[in-house]
Every structure is written in structure tokens, then in C-alpha cells.
Design a protein around this nucleic acid. Structure first.
Length: 802
RNA sequence: GCGGGUAUGGUGGAAUUGGCAGACACGCCGGUCUUAGAAGCCGGUGCCGAGAGGCGUGAAGGUUCAAGUCCUUUUACCCGCACCA
């Protein structure tokens, strides 16, 4: 039996021996295994944490036994709203809440037996960590990558904070699901768009799953096209537009401009229906971004009377319309509309009775009657010197022509926006900047870092997007570091994502007070060899941290362009009802209870066996019992294990193929099939009266990463030397992985009819002879001729008859 | 709308350079042990059929000696993005 009470005993042995602490011995081959560090919420460890942590734990433990110097660190991403909200509710200071939660998390993590290096624990809210988060911010500021800007920001009225684009996907708050609103506000931004191309390019050199790459590529959303100048008749003004289809310029029948566009104000005097335009603009701006981007919405707009735009290629006059289907914050906020080849323009043109001129026809077939032809498989028509060219050639030729004639320039656009980097809350890193009346925005000198939070009682944020820090006069009022005059501090704090954007660097050198981490240590430990995390972070944390890391590389602080060599992802664990676990649904499984009732190894084995690691899977209490049963079965092997050597050919070949399979399956994170393979092997052991300890020992080492407690115990019970954590990973002999006799299935016309047993070394021709000599064959060939025999070595024989 | 993913027994899931579909486990059935039960151990279990045999990987076609796997068409569900010009 696997007695859960042994868990504590082994956890103490590991802790006392420090066998999982990484050493900075640069002569050894390293392996840096990383999981996304938890947010220490009051709810405690979730069963969703167990799966990725165990998965990486298996790999970390295997790598150690394979002789690697493994760094498998843990820390806490502890700034953030839930803690602050809890503090507001209870009156307990966020510092205390955080410390208590971390203590609780630590105990829980230890009770599951993860092989983390507990000597390198990071808490992002501690002064010695905040110091370097702020330091990085200052470097960004110095390079012009942190700037303050008055723009429309996503604002969550419930949380009372500004949100980054990444946090307001779908028009709702990431955290509380409230509708977000657009608020004009001056906030700190990080210029992540400057790094869009670098982030995109390096993706090619990374070992990330395709769907992760695809999601990041889509999020960055690069498009290439041209920015083109259209003159406005009888004025000096120019309407600049961005298009990905310069080849369709002969098909432009109107121009469309966003309601917010400033050109409308400039042309005020020439616009005959300016009142009507103003009315429309007011209406449009009332709508939230979310409303404006609803698909079902009818297109609206107003013709700008008195204004005509000149097509720079044809010199034809075209009308200008203002419409909210054109976004002010993408491209130039204005477009050339080609209804024949754009769905939105088509819809709009139909509604407002505007011309539709086709300028591209399909290679084969006719132009569609009732919709736009948007495919770029086509040939230019009605387009003067472009006629006959395919879309790609036409695009290139037109762009060149535009550049030569100074009508337009080649241009790339990105879907990704700059990162709104400020939250109007208390529990975050203060922005190390002061506002001086004379000197403007002034960074705090680096030697004064960290800038710590003042102790306050009231954490409730202000109504209109103001931080609770605004009210702390003695903290806010300060001296300008430049001129010593009066200055006020920034009262916004950094978003939750700040600390997690560089924590993997600090693990390499967690106590360094001179630099964020020493170059020597970073050179040894970086990049992270494998980083496992959830899909939900692909367009947030994973992009942000790649951005910060690349910036730090560019200023010479870190040795690699990219932080993570390989990224893997885990699927969600769903509730027993197949739904996402949530308190409201009452389907949450508490890992503590599983550990208490069945032992840590049962929990670990179960979550590893539950299914494909990267796919979601529903929790099953019966499955947990099955895992326990398997571990009990393993523990009972000792009842029939003997020290005398008993040769067993069958066990021998199975042992070697198991070592091979388990090793590669662990590496590929196919834990479920690795465990299935070990289960089969255990089933084989049970068929024997007595088994030699040689056939048990390797099994214990292979199973150890998944079930470390029970295997160490059994190792001790069998009187084996030392501990498993001091052992070597077993090696397999390829020649021994195949049994002496192999079974070959024989098909007739593709249908399995019988099987033959042959020696593994038998010539293929001989195998075929045996297959054809089988008396049963007659039943299927009667009255027919054997036309052909397909003979695939040690796989299958197919006899084709007619 | 665009991009990505998934679909296999009563259940979770195995199986990819195309080569035995259903490994392993849960559940269920039977045996053994027991005064009895539980646990353990052993065996059975895709569907139809008494059997021979036939059918079977969301659906419909196709390629092939051979298709869960490749091709064409299509359905359902999940995730991401979404008037991005």
C-alpha cells in the first residue's frame, strides 16, 4: 500500500538535503525549467496549478537524474487587485494579506512535493524586487519607450482602473467582466509597438507551439501596404490614407474618414453641412468602442458637402464621407473606399448609393453579382497600366509608381497598440517619476530606488480614475531631483504585468543588490530551456515579457535576444461536470483535500494520467481512485521481489522498451502514455511468482518523477542503496527493446485474418513463406488467385487475391 | 467574418513517414478469497450475430494492396481575434 503518511517524511528528507537546490556551478550542463509563478490569492492553490507544476516537476526531476544542473524555481506574483480588494473589505493591510497568502501557498506547494528550489523564492512586492522593476522602467523612460500620453483608454468603472488593450479583449474587463468604457485620460504608455517587428521576427527562431506563434502573429497583426496622399480640391490640405490594396486605386469611388479625425475641424469653413457633421460626430463618440465594433451593426455615415478629393492616379474627383466604421486609431484614420473589392465598403456603397467599379477580376469565372470580390487571386482590369497583372504584381507596380511620383510610400501597420502602463490603485509598484513645474517629468535617481509605497489606511480609488495615493500629501509632495523645486509624485502604479515581465531573470541571481542579475549568472542560466504556461497568457504575459527581455538585451543587460527557448502549454482541468471550474458553479476541486485523503502522489499521478497534457480534461473522482490503486499496486511489488537473479526474457525486452518510451514521452510531455506504459509493465510483473529486483529498480526510477514519495519509500523498503534522487536515470539498449519472437498480422485484401509468430531476425521472404503456408489462408483464396503480396518488415503482410 | 483547435466504445483516452482501431484506466460482468462484505488477486467487456461472419473512428464522397491518419465536400462544439482598410 501507498501510505499517504510517508509524504511528510520524504519532503523533509528533500528539504534537509537541499537536493533540489540549483548550484551556480558553471562547469555543469544546465537545464532551466520554468512554470508561470502563481498569484497568491486568498483562495489558495487551485487544482489548475497542479497540472503544469507537476508536468514541469516530472521533467525537472528526470533531468536531474540525467545529470543536469536543474533550476526549477518558484515565486509569487503578488501585486494586484484581488489582494487590494480583500484589504478594502477587511481592513487588513495588503502587505499582511500577501504575506499570509504566500505562507499558505508555500505550505500547499510543499505538501504536493514539487522539487522547487526553495532557496530562490521571489516575491514581486518585496522592496529588493520592486527596486529592479522600477529600474527597468527608468531605462525604458530614458530610451523614450515610456511616455505619457493623453488618449482614449479602456477604463473599467467597476475596478476603477485603466486597462491595457490586452486586458480588455472583447470589450469587457479581464478581471470582473464589466463593460469597459472609453475614457480620455493622460496615462503612461510603453512603446511596445517599436518592438513589433523584433517580436515577430524572433518567433521564427523559437520552439513554440504553432498555435502560440499564430496567436502572437495575429495579435501583433502586421499588414503591409501603402500610405497614400489625396489632395483636397481648392485647399492646401491633404487627406492621407492607409491601404493594403494600392492596386485597386482605380476602383476608389469615395473616401471615408473617422468621426474623430481632426481634418474635419480644419476644413470646417469649407464644409457646407458642418452642423450635420458635428451632430454625427457627437453620436458616434457616445458609443463605446464595443458598440462601434459590433458586427451586426448597420453602417452609418454622412456625406461631407462642399469637399471633393482628388484621386492622385486618375485625377478624378471623389466624394468624402464621415463614418464610424473607420477607426481613428488605426492607420491614418481615413481610407480610400473600393466597394467592388472590400466587404465593408460594398455594404456602405449599397446603402448610400455610391458607385461600384470593379478593377480586379477572378482568374477563372465571373465577378460575383451581389458582393465584393475580396480575394487577391485575380487580374487587374479597368486600371490603365496595371491591366493584366495579377494582384501581387499590380500592388508592387502601383506602390513603386506612387513612391517615384511622391504620391505615397510603402508602409506597415500593426494591430497591436502601445501598452497602457498605469493603474489607479495602491497595491502596485509606484512609478518612479515626479512632475516638476519647471523641469517637467523627471525620473527619480537610480540610487534612490526603490520608491516604496506609503503606509495608508484608505485604499479606495477615486471616482474619475484617480489613484488612492492622490490623497497622501506627504508622499505626493516632494522635491524635484533636478532643480530641488517643488514637485509631485506620479500617483498611478504599475500594472500587475510589470513584475512578471522579468522575474525569470531574477531567479538566476535572486539576492543581487547591485544589478537585476549578474551577467555571468545570466549567461549560464539563460535562456529558459522550457517554459510551460497557459494559452491565456500568450497575448499578455508572454508578449510583455518577450518585449522587456528584448529591450534589456538591446541595452546590454541580458545576454540573449529571447528569454524562452521552448514554450509548452497545458490544457485546463475542468470540473467533474465538464464545465470550467468556478465557485459559482460549485464544481471546484480542492487539491488539499485530495492530498489529505489519497496522498500527494495520487494527485500527481492522476493529473498526469488524465489525458493529453495540452488539452483540457474533466476531473473524475473515479480516476483519482484508479491512480491510487495503481500506486498501491506498485507498492505491493515488494511482496514478490527477490534479491536473487532470475532471468526473464520477456521482462527484459519490456523493461528496455519501457525505458525508451517513458524517457521520450516525459520529454514530449506525453505523461499519460508514459504512465500507461508503466502500468502495463507492472501488470507483467504481477504475472510472475517472484521477480528479481533488477526488474523493479529501473521502474522505480522511471516512476519517481511522477510519484516521488511512494517510489522513494519502496526503494528504502527494498533495501536499495541511497535514495532515488541520488541515482542515475536508466539507459536502454536498443537491441533489447524488441522481443525475440514477434507477431505479424496477416491480412487478405486488407482484412485481418490471422497472425503468425516468427523470430525477429527471420528474413522477410521466409516470413512470407510462413504466412502463405498457413492452412486458414485457403478459406479466403478459394476460387481466386493470389495477385500480389505486400510485405512490410515487422509490420504487416497483406495478401491480395482476385 | 477571419485564424486556430476538437470529434474514436457506457466513460477518460491510446494509435501519424498510411500498416493489427480501441493500448492504459474508469465503469460494468464473472471467478477466487471470505461467515458475509470491503479490499486484493485472476478473467471477460466496441456494435450486430447462436456461429461463420459482418459492421465500426461526427457525416458524405475519393485516392490506396491498406485510411482514425492523405484529398474533396460538409456538420457540431470549443478557443482566440474581430468594421485592422
Amino acid at each position: 500500500m501507498y501510505d499517504k503518511n510517508i509524504d511528510k517524511k520524504w519532503q523533509k528528507v528533500w528539504e534537509d538535503s537541499k537536493c533540489f537546490s540549483a548550484v551556480d556551478d558553471f562547469s555543469k550542463e544546465k537545464f532551466y525549467a520554468l512554470i508561470e509563478f502563481p498569484y497568491p490569492s486568498g483562495a489558495g492553490l487551485h487544482v489548475g496549478h497542479i497540472r503544469p507544476y507537476t508536468g514541469m516537476d516530472v521533467i525537472a526531476r528526470m533531468k536531474r537524474l540525467q545529470g543536469y544542473n536543474v533550476l526549477y524555481p518558484i515565486g509569487f506574483d503578488a501585486f494586484g487587485l484581488p489582494t487590494e480588494n480583500y484589504a478594502m473589505k477587511t481592513g487588513i493591510h495588503p502587505r499582511k494579506v500577501t504575506d499570509d497568502n504566500i505562507k499558505n501557498f508555500t505550505n500547499q506547494l510543499k505538501s504536493v512535493g514539487f522539487s522547487f528550489d526553495w532557496d530562490r523564492v521571489i516575491d514581486t512586492t518585496k522592496d529588493d524586487y520592486v527596486k529592479w522593476t522600477q529600474w527597468i522602467f527608468l531605462q525604458l523612460f530614458k530610451k523614450g519607450l515610456a511616455y505619457k500620453d493623453k488618449t482614449y483608454v479602456n477604463y473599467c468603472p467597476k475596478c476603477r482602473v485603466v486597462l491595457a488593450n490586452e486586458e480588455s479583449q472583447g470589450g469587457v474587463c479581464d478581471r470582473c467582466d464589466s463593460q469597459i468604457v472609453q475614457m480620455e485620460k493622460e496615462v503612461w504608455m510603453l512603446k511596445i509597438t517599436d518592438y513589433a517587428d523584433k517580436l515577430l521576427e524572433e518567433l521564427n527562431n523559437l520552439d513554440f507551439p504553432d498555435r502560440v506563434k499564430t496567436e502572437q502573429i495575429n495579435w501583433i497583426g502586421k499588414s503591409t501596404g501603402a500610405q497614400v496622399k489625396f489632395k483636397i480640391k481648392d485647399t492646401d490640405e491633404i487627406l492621407e490614407i492607409y491601404t493594403t490594396r494600392p492596386d485597386t486605386i482605380y476602383g476608389v469611388t469615395y473616401m471615408a474618414i473617422a468621426p474623430e479625425h481632426e481634418l474635419l475641424d480644419k476644413l470646417k469653413d469649407k464644409i457646407k453641412n458642418f452642423d450635420k457633421i458635428q451632430e454625427y460626430r457627437k453620436e458616434a463618440m457616445k458609443k463605446s468602442e464595443f458598440e462601434r465594433t459590433q458586427i451586426v451593426k448597420e453602417k452609418t455615415g454622412v456625406k461631407v458637402e462642399g469637399i471633393e478629393v482628388i484621386n492622385p492616379i486618375t485625377n478624378k474627383l471623389i466624394p468624402l464621407l464621415v463614418t464610424d466604421y473607420v477607426m481613428v486609431n488605426y492607420g491614418t484614420g481615413a481610407i480610400m473606399a473600393v466597394p467592388a473589392h472590400d466587404d465593408r465598403d460594398y455594404e456602405f456603397a449599397k446603402k448610400f448609393n455610391l458607385d461600384i467599379i470593379p478593377v480586379v477580376k477572378p482568374v477563372n469565372g465571373e465577378l460575383p453579382e451581389d458582393k465584393a470580390y475580396t480575394s487577391d487571386e485575380g487580374i487587374a482590369i479597368n486600371s490603365d497600366f496595371l491591366n493584366g497583372l495579377n494582384v501581387k504584381e499590380a500592388k508592387e507596380k502601383m506602390t513603386q509608381y506612387m513612391e517615384e511620383n511622391k504620391i505615397g510610400v510603402r508602409k506597415s501597420q500593426y494591430h497591436m497598440k502601445d501598452w497602457a502602463f498605469a493603474r489607479q490603485r495602491y497595491w502596485g509598484e509606484p512609478l518612479p517619476i515626479v512632475k516638476c513645474e519647471k523641469c517637467g517629468l523627471v525620473p527619480i535617481p537610480e540610487e534612490e530606488l526603490p520608491l516604496t509605497l506609503p503606509k495608508i489606511e484608505n485604499f479606495i480609488p477615486g471616482e474619475d480614475g484617480k489613484s488612492p495615493l492622490v490623497n497622501v500629501d506627504e508622499w505626493v509632495n516632494t522635491k524635484c531631483p533636478k532643480c530641488s523645486g517643488h514637485a509631485v509624485r506620479e500617483t498611478d502604479t504599475m500594472p500587475q504585468w510589470a513584475g512578471s515581465s522579468w522575474y525569470f531573470l531574477r531567479y538566476a541571481d535572486p539576492f543581487n543588490d547591485k544589478e537585476l542579475a549578474s551577467m555571468d549568472k545570466l549567461k549560464y542560466w539563460l535562456p529558459v530551456d522550457q517554459y510551460n504556461g497557459g494559452m491565456e497568457h500568450v497575448t499578455r504575459h508572454l508578449i510583455y515579457s518577450r518585449f522587456w527581455h528584448r529591450f534589456l538585451y538591446d541595452i546590454g543587460v541580458v545576454p540573449t535576444k529571447e528569454p524562452y527557448k521552448k514554450r509548452t502549454t497545458h490544457g485546463l482541468i475542468l470540473g467533474p461536470d465538464g464545465n470550467k471550474m468556478s465557485k459559482s458553479k460549485g464544481n471546484v476541486v480542492n487539491p488539499d483535500e485530495i492530498v489529505k485523503e489519497y496522498g500527494a502522489d495520487t494527485l500527481r499521478t492522476y493529473v498526469m494520467f488524465i489525458g493529453d497534457f495540452s488539452l483540457s480534461a474533466a476531473w473524475s473522482d473515479n480516476g483519482v481512485k484508479g491512480a491510487k490503486k495503481f500506486l498501491d499496486r506498485v507498492a505491493r511489488i515488494k511482496d514478490f521481489t527477490t534479491n536473487e537473479y532470475i532471468e526473464n526474457k520477456e521482462l527484459e525486452s519490456n523493461l528496455h522498451s519501457m525505458i525508451k518510451k517513458v524517457t521520450s514521452d516525459y520529454t514530449d510531455m506525453k505523461f499519460n502514455t508514459a504512465i500507461a506504459c508503466m502500468m502495463s509493465y507492472v501488470n507483467l510483473l504481477y504475472k510472475e511468482e517472484k521477480v528479481s529486483v533488477n526488474y523493479v529498480k529501473p521502474l522505480l526510477i522511471l516512476l519517481n518523477p511522477v510519484a516521488p514519495h511512494v517510489t522513494e519509500q519502496l526503494w528504502e523498503d527494498l533495501g536499495l542503496e541511497g535514495h532515488i534522487f541520488e541515482s542515475k536515470w536508466p539507459q536502454f539498449d536498443e537491441t533489447k527493446t524488441v522481443a525475440d519472437m514477434v507477431e505479424i498480422p496477416v491480412q487478405v485484401n486488407g482484412v485481418l485474418r490471422y497472425k503468425i509468430n516468427v523470430s525477429k531476425d527471420l528474413e522477410q521472404q521466409e516470413v512470407e513463406k510462413i504466412a502463405l503456408a498457413e492452412p486458414k489462408l485457403e478459406n479466403y483464396t478459394r476460387g481466386k488467385n493470389i495477385v500480389k503480396v505486400i510485405n512490410i518488415k515487422s509490420k504487416i503482410i497483406n495478401i491480395v487475391v482476385k
